[in-house]
Simulated assay, not measured.
Amino acid sequence: MTRRTPPRPAPVEELFPEVVPFRREAVRLHPRAGRPAPGDSSVGGPLLWPAREPWPDCPEHPGSPMVAVVQVRRADVPDLVPFPEGRDLLQVLWCPRAHDGQWVVPLVRWRSAAEVGEVRQAPPVPPEARYGQVPRPCVVHPEPVTEYPSWDLPDTLWDALEPRVEQVEAQTGWDYQFHLSTAPGIKLGGYPGWCQEPRWPDCPTCRAPMDHLLTVDSTEDHDCRLTWTPVEDRDLRRKGADLSLGDLGGVYLFECRACPGRPFAHRYDA
């Protein structure tokens, strides 16, 4: 079933034309409980992982297997996130156990589905996995959406917009950050769904700011009015990925597309 995010409840570009140059496209994955196959795009589903390749363990907990978080086929999403040449499958895993100072330790793999061959079955989830760190198996319904920055707006621009933002909220009840700017949920591209001050990473090799690759958020809608919830379904408690990251926060993955191997980094907040 197609999922459609409702239009923003207020005309963003009319109210705040200054944010138009910062507009970005994202792909919301809209995970819903299901039975994805290893070759499908999925959240928490079986991965198309080669049998000849060992299943990854957590570098901080040797012998403790990582769990599948996201798998995306290039054919299922628009060309908003450039896949590496010769690769048509993005796979993200992480360790669901407790770590010193961070929620999860992720791993990113780009591969060619045609080169996988025999598929390895995932090992059991480690018994020490924390609550809410293992997504339930979900099929996905990718949808392109337009986003505008909130925390990532330049400070000088935010200072100029803040009085108007407050005026719009007082008149309409719609908050720019939560209702009009960045989409919550699990998504490719666009802007990270920061809950706090941004901590955008620089590439450790070239020192350039990294590109946002993926947001894995605890919920698809943080607001009780469900302004970001697809019109086709409003009961996400039973249908989503059932994640609980920190205080219903998110994990954000970044990559450097200019350096060999596409090094990645991650951030998280509540």
Rank of each mutant, 00 (worst) to 15 (best):
residue 184 P to A: 06
residue 111 R to M: 10
residue 218 S to L: 02
residue 131 Y to Q: 15
residue 195 C to D: 13
residue 142 P to V: 02
residue 147 E to W: 07
residue 182 T to I: 09
residue 202 D to S: 15
residue 134 V to I: 09
residue 109 R to V: 13
residue 124 P to M: 07
residue 196 Q to C: 13
residue 135 P to G: 13
residue 161 L to R: 02
residue 189 G to N: 11
residue 216 V to A: 05
residue 197 E to H: 14
residue 133 Q to V: 02
residue 114 A to T: 14
residue 149 P to K: 06
residue 192 P to K: 01
residue 148 Y to E: 06
residue 112 S to T: 12
residue 175 D to H: 13
residue 168 V to Y: 09
residue 115 E to D: 14
residue 220 E to G: 15
residue 130 R to Y: 06
residue 148 Y to W: 14
residue 216 V to P: 02
residue 125 V to P: 11
residue 126 P to T: 08
residue 211 D to K: 07
residue 140 V to R: 00
residue 187 K to D: 08
residue 127 P to W: 01
residue 180 L to E: 11
residue 156 T to Q: 14
residue 226 L to P: 00
residue 185 G to S: 11
residue 137 P to H: 06
residue 136 R to H: 12
residue 175 D to S: 13
residue 199 R to D: 14
residue 111 R to H: 07
residue 143 E to K: 04
residue 166 E to M: 04
residue 151 W to V: 03
residue 129 A to Q: 09
residue 109 R to G: 07
residue 126 P to W: 00
residue 220 E to W: 11
residue 205 T to F: 13
residue 165 V to W: 03
residue 202 D to R: 15
residue 173 G to K: 00
residue 164 R to V: 00
residue 136 R to I: 11
residue 112 S to F: 03
residue 222 H to G: 13
residue 110 W to V: 04
residue 146 T to G: 07
residue 205 T to Y: 11
residue 145 V to G: 07
residue 132 G to C: 06
residue 157 L to C: 08
residue 113 A to D: 11
residue 163 P to S: 05
residue 140 V to E: 10
residue 117 G to C: 06
residue 172 T to N: 08
residue 148 Y to C: 06
residue 160 A to D: 15
residue 220 E to Q: 15
residue 146 T to A: 13
residue 181 S to A: 14
residue 155 D to R: 15
residue 205 T to L: 15
residue 110 W to L: 08
residue 208 A to C: 03
residue 165 V to C: 13
residue 177 Q to A: 03
residue 120 R to Q: 12
residue 200 W to N: 07
residue 187 K to R: 14
residue 199 R to P: 02
residue 112 S to R: 13
residue 174 W to A: 00
residue 167 Q to M: 05
residue 184 P to Y: 00
residue 182 T to N: 10
residue 166 E to S: 12
residue 195 C to L: 11
residue 157 L to S: 03
residue 215 T to Q: 14
